[in-house]
Every structure is written in structure tokens, then in C-alpha cells.
Amino acid sequence: MPLRILLLTVLIILLSGCGGPQNMLGPAGPAAREISTLSWIVLGIFSAVALIMWVLLGWAAWRRRGSLSEHEPIDIGGGQDWILTGGFLIPFVILATVFVLGLRTMMAFPVNHGMHDHADIRVTGHQWWWEVQYLDGTVNRHFTTANEIHIPAGRAVDIELQTADVLHSFWVPKLHGKEDLVPGQPNLIRIEADQPGTYSGQCAEFCGAQHAHMMLVVIAQPEAEYQAWIAGQIDSSAQPVNGEQALGQQIFLAKPCALCHTIRGTEAHGTVGPDLTHLASRQGIAANMLPNNEANLAAWVTHAQALKPASRMPNVTQFSGDQLQSLTAYLQSLY
């Protein structure tokens, strides 16, 4: 009975690691599938090796059980064939196999320097958020957004990765393997999602105080929906449609907000923080640390340093409650 409980406990612990939104063993795209397959193969091979080793060790212990006086001294002569086979040949074959499989997986990520010239998207890592520039088509179709990447489902997208400050790493576990953002060295990665859906990701290279709060979202959409999203993003920002929003826009432009943030279609053209032109269309704020809603927007504007200490967003408190409400109303109108 205790054995059964023990097995059950172990099984529960093992299974609790499965699933989840960032499960690399639940691939949703070709690159992630290659990695997942390789992981299972390697896990299988080395589980088998470990099992055989433990059985041999157990067998040796069993055969020689008892006290030393019961046995003749161990004959240390001979056995070189065992060493040659078990210590060299078998490991060589296994490691060579894993090496070749690893090379095969790497070949599933076609990266060449020509891709730099026509990357579809450029992602720039900042402490601690993601700048996302769409480079598809002619220059008048380029636009900038943040922390949320939309891609067409079933079509490969090439992403150029660079950083504005320190090392970061771009990782959406269900879609692809980690790729570092290296200062002065743009990298490339090709991602593809089989099905429409939302895939969450994370900075995977420690980059400072708020590394854990540097999240991103990849949203794969059917082609028509994706094109509609692109068209919406290319448009400049929504203009206020009522008095409250108009007041909010005035506050945004008069207060320090406009110095660090851009809202296309207004005089705000700062480049320190994320582009807010279509802020309301995004799921999260503060690099997806908080859901994008009125309460969080107000909290973020006034208490950013409490929510995400050391981030570049200061606490902005120079307004009344009514003014803050107008400001959030304006920010929420930016579809």
C-alpha cells in the first residue's frame, strides 16, 4: 500500500510539470515540434541508459552481497573489453547519434544572412519591454507597436532580433527555441504557428531587476483577420470622440507622457517608452505584466515604480482624480 501511494505521488509530481501556456513539450509550430521531438528522443535514450546502468549496478551488488570474508579477492585482470565497449564504443555511438539528431534540429531553423534584408518584423529588447516594428511592404506600411506580435497562422514569419541595452532572449516556448538578443549583433529567427491562437512568451536571459516581468504575447490569426489587424495598426491613432477623451488627450500632451511615448496622429513622439498609438488594442500593459484595463492603466500611470521598480516609467502624480480618469478614458479609446 505505501508503495502504491509513493508511485501515485511521484506520478502526480511528474504530471504537474505538463501542460501550461509555455509548455515546450506541447509544440504549436514546426520549429517547436522539432525541439520537442528531440527532447523526447534524448529523454528516451538516456532513461534507457540510466535504467540499464542501475540494473547492472544492482546486479553487481546482489552477486557480491555478504561480507568480504565470504568472497575471494576480486580478480582485477581482464575486463578490458568491457571497458572498451561500455566506456567508449557505446557512449560514442549514443553521443554521435544525439549529435547528428541535434544537427538535424538545427537545420529545421533556416537562418541565412540574406534574411536580414527582408525580415518581416524587427523585435528590439529594452529593459524591460519589447519594441515590435513591422517591416513588411513599402515604408509607408511600416509601423511600431510593443509587447504583442501578431502573425498569420500557418505562414512562416522572419523576425530580426536586436537589443537597445543588455542581453535578452526571445522565447515563445510553444513556437520556437530561444534566440538571444545580442548588443551589436542582430539575430534572426523564423517562427510559425500551425493554428490561430495566443502563445505567451518570456525574456529567457536574465536582464536585470524586472527580467521576470518582461513578457510578450504572440497572436496567430487567420490570414484575413491578420491583414485587417495590419491595416488597423497602420492607421494613425483614434481621435477623441467626446469631451472626456479630448481632455485626456490634452493632459497626455501637456504632461510629461508625450516626451517618452509616441501616439501617431498627435504631437506625442517620444521614443523612450513603448508606442501607444493603438494601446487599447493590446491585451496587456507593462510588458504584459498587467491586463489592459482602466484600473491597471490608472495604477500604472501613478504607481509604476511600486508595481515595477526600476522600470523607466516614473510615477506621474501631478493631476487630480478627474484628470486621471480623463487620461485613462483617452488611453482606452486608442484602438
Partner: peptide, 19 residues
């Protein structure tokens, strides 16, 4: 310094913050 939120980054009395 107060009105333009300099203190938001450089801290109260410019004693240092995130900036």
C-alpha cells in the same frame, strides 16, 4: 522640477530614484 515630474525619475529633492 516638481511640476514636470523630474522627481518621478530623479527622486524627491533629486536624491535619485530609477534615474
Amino acid at each position: 522640477f516638481e511640476a514636470y515630474n523630474c522627481a518621478g525619475c530623479h527622486g524627491d529633492h533629486a536624491g535619485g530614484g530609477m534615474g
